[in-house]
Design a protein around this nucleic acid. Structure first.
Length: 221
DNA sequence: TTATAGATTGCCT
DNA sequence: GGCAATCTATAAT
């Protein structure tokens, strides 16, 4: 089923952010830490277009904060928000053209205990690692996944996510996404209506207070 | 179970 | 000075 993970090519990111956001679902975000591998499967993303997207940081033009979004594809744009949290994006489109994808939620795959500790959780017993309601607190949310993988602006901004020399990478293991859902983006006020949030339909690790039902059909109640 | 407010830093106007 | 691509605790139902 799952093949040995391979690195994504830089060309994977050299296209429209909407395409990249869709294609990233099911891929792995991997942190190579001193003590071992931390990894999560990408289950939710958002596309941020270029200078025509009022909700994108790129709308203000290139600044010291957002320059990575204007650079070559496949690089990490990490920003600090609300005084508390980091958010991770990957740049898209060729050098000189703005565009990126925000990582919004991961399903923990490897190094789960380390990630939980990084989030300040206490592991009460082995049962915790089997409970989805507990596991989904680890990386379901853009700020949470950064904390789980130890992602900060200082450490990771402008890092190449498509390089084998990087300790933060995006990889492919042959996982097949069955169905993708598309909704408006979260937490923005401008251009809020556009359907640019992508998630794996039915996956319990997407953001939101409710665990989605495994069967998406029949919205009768 | 859902709704609301507070935290807290740095970027942009 | 205002506000942000969020999370958590606390309150209300």
């Amino acid at each position: 089923m799952s093949a040995h993970p391979t690195l994504l090519e830089p060309s994977f990111f050299n296209r429209d952010p909407r395409k990249v956001a869709r294609a990233l679902l099911g891929k792995l975000l991997v942190r190579k830490a001193a003590r071992g591998i931390l990894a999560g499967r990408i289950v939710e993303t958002e596309a941020y277009l270029g200078e025509n997207d009022d909700a994108a940081h790129a709308v203000a033009g290139k600044t010291a904060r957002n320059f990575v979004v204007f650079g070559p594809p496949g690089f990490a744009y990490v920003y600090f928000v609300y005084g508390n949290h980091y958010c991770l994006n990957v740049s898209c489109l060729p050098d000189g053209i703005a565009g990126c994808v925000l990582f919004r939620a991961l399903e923990p795959v490897a190094g789960i205990e380390e990630m939980a500790e990084a989030r300040g959780f206490e592991i009460h017993g082995p049962d915790d690692l089997r409970r989805v309601s507990w596991l989904r607190q680890i990386a379901s949310g853009p700020g949470r996944l950064c904390e789980a993988l130890g992602i900060t602006r200082e450490r990771d901004n402008a890092k190449n996510l498509a390089s084998s020399r990087s300790d933060l990478r995006i990889m492919e293991d042959g996982y097949r996404v069955r169905q993708v859902a598309v909704t408006p983006r979260v937490g923005i006020s401008k251009s809020a209506a556009h359907p640019l949030r992508y998630l794996i339909a039915g996956n319990p690790f997407v953001t939101g207070s409710k665990i989605p039902s495994p069967h998406v059909q029949g919205a009768g109640d």
